[in-house]
Design a protein around this nucleic acid. Sequence first.
DNA 1: CCGACAATATTGTTCGACAATCCGAAGCTC
DNA 2: GAGCTTCGGATTGTCGAACAATATTGTCGG
Lengths: 234, 234
Amino acid sequence: MFMDKLRASPKKPMATSTPDMVVRSINEGILKRRYSIGQRLVESDLTRDLKVSRGTVREALKTLSAEGVVKLTPHRGAFIRSLSRKEANDLLLVLEVLCGVAARLAAQRINSGDHLKQFRAATQALPGMGNNAVSSGFPEQRARFYQTMLTICGNAELERTMPLSHIFMFRAQFQGLWSNKDIAAVLKEYQEVAAAILAGNVKLAETRMRRHIRKTAERMSKLADSAFAVADLS
Amino acid sequence: MFMDKLRASPKKPMATSTPDMVVRSINEGILKRRYSIGQRLVESDLTRDLKVSRGTVREALKTLSAEGVVKLTPHRGAFIRSLSRKEANDLLLVLEVLCGVAARLAAQRINSGDHLKQFRAATQALPGMGNNAVSSGFPEQRARFYQTMLTICGNAELERTMPLSHIFMFRAQFQGLWSNKDIAAVLKEYQEVAAAILAGNVKLAETRMRRHIRKTAERMSKLADSAFAVADLS
DNA sequence: CCGACAATATTGTTCGACAATCCGAAGCTC
DNA sequence: GAGCTTCGGATTGTCGAACAATATTGTCGG
């Protein structure tokens, strides 16, 4: 009680709400391969496993649906989103401009505060950026890269519009399908983007980031049909 | 399959879910000035007025929050979102690229299907586009303009990312604060964008749309402080 | 006017219930 | 056996009530 009042300083006592914990649990479950793409999420299973009420689960699913992580079908429930070829292309088209803006803003603000230090730390952990442990938690490092970039942007609307979950989603669906050449190309592109941002080169950062997304779209278009969900007939 | 096709006639059996009705009711309430910017939405009031359960109201508020229409503050409830100067600028920065892409895609697809007819109809209703009833439901006509453009794009991700509600929100907060010169300029910009899209000029449509949003940002920056919410100190 | 405390209002979360709907299996007809 | 209908179980959609946790307001003495 007394402690609480003392804490009334600008610090936030923000304990994450229960639905948020469910959201995080599911997001993590996707990333960690505990849930597979397209899998159905049954409310009663979640209430049992996570020990929360059904209303809470439903709120979490609503949030995930709004983020585009799960697809909600009336009277059928929630499914881990699985992209058709067209949906994947549509997503990348939007991601191209959003990530482009993010890279631009990050480059623009790289020299204020301790942004430079933060971002340098996030990029150095990426494979090929001064280290050699290629496979050690690459997805996590990439997540950190994007997260740091978004934070530096300081644009709440951008963060709301382009949650990292999109990128995780995309990655989860196609992980393991890339050739070694693809992977090498991706790493090189990240290095170039990071270099441009670190240099504070606004224009170049945006251009390179957009090029990376476009290249990703090209690489994706070469994947077999089996990598994609069947087209949505709704 | 064959039956499916027959049944899949333009009419969809999709009875809108109860939370969706609540969402629409609130969105409409904002547009129609039944709710004012920054107003608090109390769950019990909504359950009473709309005759739905509290769980349903909560799901609706979650959705609206994800769309950025209301702001959810823990233990304090939902508020119709009110933008600070910075938030408004952040929003316009994102809207610039998203609307730009939308205009580009619309121009690209204007000649397939009956897109041209649809879009022409939507633009002719705009003031200064061949009619003269300037004040007759301008917000509605503008909404139709954007809605039609997004539909023509055929990019579900774009529709999900950039719900019209954003534009309504923005409009609601600043309505009545523009000068006659501002309004005239806006109308001119819409005409130019529409013309470019109708002409199928991909590059020009995107450029003009982005310019329109940038101009809007400029006009907005000249508004008095009283038009904005106080900065968020969270 | 100010701080501390009590009373109130509202949200966060849970539980249980029932109707509506979807899915798959059993049965029926040919 | 193929195709169709029917039926029942499983799951979601919505409701209502309840209680705990927290924020807001009102009250009091100084």
